[in-house]
Each structure stands twice: as C-alpha cells, then as structure tokens.
Design a protein around this nucleic acid. Structure first.
Lengths: 111, 111
DNA sequence: TTAATATATTGACAAAAATCAATATAAAGT
DNA sequence: ACTTTATATTGATTTTTGTCAATATATTAA
C-alpha cells in the first residue's frame, strides 16, 4: 500500500530536479549520447550517470547501448504512463460526497 | 535559464514524495481539512503542514482557510498546468535531425 | 595484449529535504 | 480575558539526495 505510493513517486523523481529537467529538454530534440549531454549539463560525468539512472528508472527515459556509447532518449510509453499517472493523481472523483459533508456542517473533522 | 528549470521542478516536487502522493490520493475524494489528512497520513502535525506547503507551492493543491480550519483540495487549473508541463517535457520534437545524425555515423559525439 | 575512450560504480562528503518537539499564531468557545 | 483547538513556524536532528574523486568495466583502436 505504502509501497504503491513509493513506486508512483519514482515516476516523478524524473522531473523534480533541475538537472534532470535540463536533460529532458535536451532529449526533446532526439536521442543523445551521454557525452553530448555531459557537454551541455553543468555536472561531472559520474553525476550525470547518476541522474541518467534515475531518469531511466522512472521509465521516462530509455537507454540504448551501442559500442562504447550509451544513447538516451525519451521513452514514449513510459512518458505516457507518467502522464496517465499524473492525470489519475489530480483527478477529483465527482461522485464522492466528502467535500459537501465538510462544507455543510460548520464544524469540521468528521472524516 | 537555469531558474526556469528550477521553477518547473517545483511543480513535480508535489508528486515525487510518498507522503504527498498519499495526500493527493486522499484529496481525490474531495476537499479535506488538515485534521482529517493528519489522521490518515502517518506523520506528525508540523510535518504534514510542511508537506501541504510544498503541495500548495507546486500549484497542484489549493488551500482555503475557514475559521480554525484549513481546507485543502486539488487545484484544477494548477493540475492542468502540471499536466501540460509534463507533456511539454516529454514530447519529442519530430522535425529535429539530431537523432539521425547520431545514428548515421558510427562515431558519436558531434553535438 | 596494450592503450585509449565512454560510461558505470564506489565511497566520501556536502547540500537539501523530512521529521519531530517546542512554540507561535489565530480563531472560537467559555 | 482566558482556555481550547487547529494550524503554522522555528530550530534541531536524521535521512536522503546530489556531487565529486577515484576506480572499475567494457568496448574499440593500435
């Protein structure tokens, strides 16, 4: 139960950090290898590698290894899932009465 | 420039934490006052207050103060903005040639 | 097989975030 | 005015995260 929330949080870890957002922005113009990203982002190589791992773990980015290089790109299906999840999390269920209950009584705190 | 990414990151701070996701889930069934949330979430009162501040700052949740109580609810317009931003961040621009360049040459690392 | 190059991993440290206890504020009830 | 109740703020502490230097791994080139 709690683990479910943890899992969901992981998805949004992708975009709650400045550096990772910058990487996402760079990937918008297509697949990039780590060395290219490294040139643009202002962190060291191990740090970038760390961020890329978080991005890949989130599902929003996928990695493809070819020879010496690792190419990163935005993962369409992972992104779709992230969007769906955000939509799910921010959707207010219309048929629930909790809201009105709280409003109607002047006193709150009845579940 | 960097500040822009920082600002964007703030939006997703809302859902990159287990506890805050749980709060969002609770708010899906309608507006709730802090005391109700406090009962359900397994953190102390000051900690909840802290999380609620982050949620409100992200724009995804809005607060309404009435008497002694503070009522929190999912902010439709803030949520919409978050969704648009996520969409923006994960959209690959089709007309960019960067990807093909990297693929065509066996050697990478030409911007 | 040795050297060079690209990226990942490890370990240490610094910065940021989460947490709680104590306290402050602010509204309502007495 | 005083007390109670709900929430916010402050300060200290713990936990997590970001960062880098050093090193490991893996692939290609010589």
């Amino acid at each position: 139960m709690q683990d479910e929330y943890k899992e969901q949080a992981k998805v949004f870890k992708a975009c709650c950090d400045e550096t990772r957002i910058m990487v996402l922005s760079l990937l918008q113009s297509g697949e990039k290898c780590a060395c290219v990203l490294l040139e643009k982002v202002n962190v060291g190589q191990p740090t970038l590698s760390h961020h890329m791992k978080i991005l890949v773990d989130s599902g929003v980015v996928s990695a493809r290894k070819q020879g010496k290089w690792t190419y990163y790109s935005i993962d369409e299906s992972g992104s779709e899932k992230a969007k769906e999840l955000l939509n799910l999390l921010t959707t207010v269920k219309k048929d629930s009465a909790s809201s009105e209950l709280c409003e109607s009584e002047e006193g709150c705190c009845n579940e």
